[in-house]
Design a protein around this nucleic acid. Structure first.
Lengths: 164, 164
DNA sequence: CTACGTTTGTTCGTGTTTCAAACTATTCAA
DNA sequence: TTGAATAGTTTGAAACACGAACAAACGTAG
């Protein structure tokens, strides 16, 4: 099998794995997948506006608002009007929300990390370098989609690539 | 930053990229994400039962049924009662469904493949090997979750690993 | 051959997600 | 001060997702 096809298959496998893990966590926490996604995003950033959350998750503000409504009803997140800019609404995990995220969610990642750290240092570097290449090539698609119609832009995009 | 953390960040990036690509295709085809997922799965397998589709997508049969209802209404898929086993329902793409999937969906992958094939052979091998490791470590979580309670099973699971 | 449990898929009811469009409140600039 | 832009919410409608209940077909024990 060609390397490129093998790569695509592996990527699907990886995405499927993480998806199933997320569903597992979803079951254990009693949250839906989108709700879990909000909680995980907030756990890392501590404090985000509704708009930032929407952009982070690639969803509409309206969608995020409705998800936040349910999480707020469960007292897992708190909303606070901005004082400096009163249009903004700052969202953060409540104590019980933080508590919920302390449990199962992290242990799954911990298992991965444990396996990862069992690898030799050079192997770790190889994996990181490879993932960087894949991530880059996947992002490149976004930049290369339009240029089919615009050669000039293609050249510029390639220059961008070379800079990194 | 630690290699393991960097890896997790990259994985999220990769998943995010593919998610956005899927949404792009979703927009261009006028299909929703789950509908697109069914179509893509069918494109590769030609012919699946409702149950196989559900398992493949990690969804309930009931959910798949409702998605199929809508795709059938659009004449993109066809259902056919099994003749040998009349409980089964075979699902396949119609001509227009195949036609729809011939367009945008593949071109995105093609761009990735083109970039991938620009790499040196040794780089390609490195990427494949790395993705295999990551995929394995992610799957390992499933096997390692229970063994915390059952040491015997842990040993057996590790033996499984060594065989591959 | 009949009766019973299993498998396969659909239907139903309920709650959630998702978006576009319309709306309110606030900020910023002319 | 007026007008445009920004940040969030509300509303309405379609789709998704699941468990539970159901019907049909299969397989097998008796």
């Amino acid at each position: 099998m060609e390397n490129s096809q093998r790569t695509l298959v592996l990527l699907r496998q990886i995405i499927r794995s993480t998806d199933m893990q997320d569903k597992e966590i979803s079951r254990s926490t009693g949250l839906t997948l989108p709700q879990l996604m909000v909680m995980q995003t907030l756990r890392e950033s501590l404090r985000l506006t509704t708009g930032e959350l929407a952009k982070e998750m690639a969803l509409t503000q309206a969608t995020v608002t409705s998800i936040l409504d349910r999480l707020e009803k469960k007292s897992l997140i708190a909303r606070e009007r901005g004082t400096e800019d009163k249009r903004k609404v700052w969202v953060s995990l409540t104590d019980s929300g933080l508590e919920l995220m302390k449990g199962a969610p992290t242990t799954q990642q911990d298992i991965f990390v444990r396996h990862f750290e069992d690898m030799q240092t050079w192997e770790q570097s190889m994996v990181v370098a490879s993932l960087e290449r894949v991530a880059f090539m996947l992002n490149a698609q976004h930049l290369d989609a339009a240029p089919v119609l615009d050669i000039g832009q293609l050249d510029r995009a390639q220059d961008e690539h070379l800079k990194n």
